[in-house]
Simulated scan of single mutants.
Amino acid sequence: MVQEAANPIVMAKLYAIMEAIADRVEMHKNIGEQQNNWNSLLLTSVNTITLTAATMAGIAVTTASIGAPLLALKLSSTLLYLAATGMMLIINKIQPSQLAEEQRNAARLFKQLHGQIQTTIKIGTPTMADVKEFMDKVLALDKAYPLPLLGAMLDKFPSAVEPAVWWPQQPERQVKGLSGRTDKNGWNGKLEEEMRKIVGVLNRKDKKDYLRLGEKALKINKLLAISGPLLTGLAAAGSAFVGSPSHGASAAVVGCVAGALASVVNTFEHGGQVGMVFEMYRSNAGFFSLMEESIESNLKERDVERRENGELFDMKVALQLGRSLSELKDLSAASSRTGNAIEEFASKLF
């Protein structure tokens, strides 16, 4: 059977989309590297400033009886602490490690989309519906992972943790021409039931667990983001009163100890890349949400000829979960035996 030739306009549009995607991959990759460098450089700079200010506050105690040196050390220490406080507020607002993770995710997903278009061109006859679908996916990715910092940046401290969403609403399914299709397009009642059980496991175990971990990472990040500037601000106030007859000793302790603690907090937050960890958990939860939506979209389509081929879809789900086809069936069977009490996670990848 000779495959029908694709419309040249459709092909031209698909290649134009591929070129735009390739450019976006490069942009996200470059910006991600830059933001990762920001995280390292700003972490080192803030810690250096903070520890220098703490050292100056400590030296000022030993020169408490000397007017000019004491004033110079106190003023320098206070100004350095205030500079560190301002820098921490900005860094904690933008979360460079989280920004870098967003760009890494965007680059990976754009590469994946680029591959999907190539596959569509090679094994099918693309239509204008395919062009619209891929355009919608590009725009959804642009919205999910914005490039600008001002105005469009994602909220780094949301009130509630939600899975990342980088795909458009599932479009109306088009008939996919596959040679050698079996009766009912590879679907049967057993496969449908297996997919429903997998959706249940994904929702109860995998997605729920990553959202729980994401909430913990978010709470830790919020605490650290508040504690760092608060400690440097307290240290600035303490260093300003070093040498004062009424607050001399306590001010010196606050000026040195609060500064040292601020450095520890900043190192844990940005050196440990807590923001990146939160984004990773949020993205993983989104991956499972996309799988659920994809499976449910196929199951809701009553005309099996309009679904994705069942055998192919079964293999895709198994690969996405890091399982063999037999392991996927075992997971479904285990879910049937134990119900909601199943302890095994659906995914073996992460």
Results as ranks from 00 to 15, higher is better:
residue 95 Q to L: 05
residue 20 A to L: 02
residue 204 R to S: 11
residue 29 K to H: 13
residue 43 L to I: 12
residue 93 K to L: 10
residue 245 P to N: 09
residue 149 L to D: 03
residue 236 A to C: 12
residue 144 A to H: 05
residue 216 K to E: 09
residue 288 F to Y: 15
residue 199 V to F: 11
residue 16 A to S: 09
residue 306 R to Q: 10
residue 302 R to K: 13
residue 101 E to R: 14
residue 348 K to S: 13
residue 176 K to R: 07
residue 237 A to T: 14
residue 283 S to E: 09
residue 350 F to I: 08
residue 285 A to Y: 03
residue 307 R to F: 04
residue 233 G to Y: 04
residue 345 F to T: 08
residue 188 N to I: 05
residue 214 G to E: 02
residue 99 L to Y: 04
residue 207 K to E: 13
residue 75 L to P: 00
residue 37 N to P: 00
residue 212 R to M: 11
residue 31 I to F: 08
residue 137 K to M: 09
residue 57 A to L: 06
residue 300 K to T: 15
residue 238 G to N: 01
residue 270 H to R: 03
residue 211 L to I: 13
residue 210 Y to N: 06
residue 82 L to S: 06
residue 224 L to E: 05
residue 146 P to A: 09
residue 146 P to V: 13
residue 71 L to M: 13
residue 97 S to E: 08
residue 130 D to P: 04
residue 25 V to M: 14
residue 116 Q to K: 13
residue 291 M to K: 11
residue 346 A to M: 14
residue 191 L to Q: 11
residue 148 P to T: 13
residue 180 G to Y: 03
residue 307 R to G: 09
residue 94 I to H: 09
residue 163 P to D: 06
residue 212 R to A: 09
residue 194 E to I: 15
residue 28 H to G: 04
residue 71 L to Y: 12
residue 255 G to F: 01
residue 175 V to Y: 02
residue 88 M to N: 12
residue 93 K to P: 04
residue 22 A to N: 09
residue 307 R to L: 04
residue 319 L to S: 13
residue 283 S to V: 05
residue 339 G to F: 14
residue 258 A to I: 03
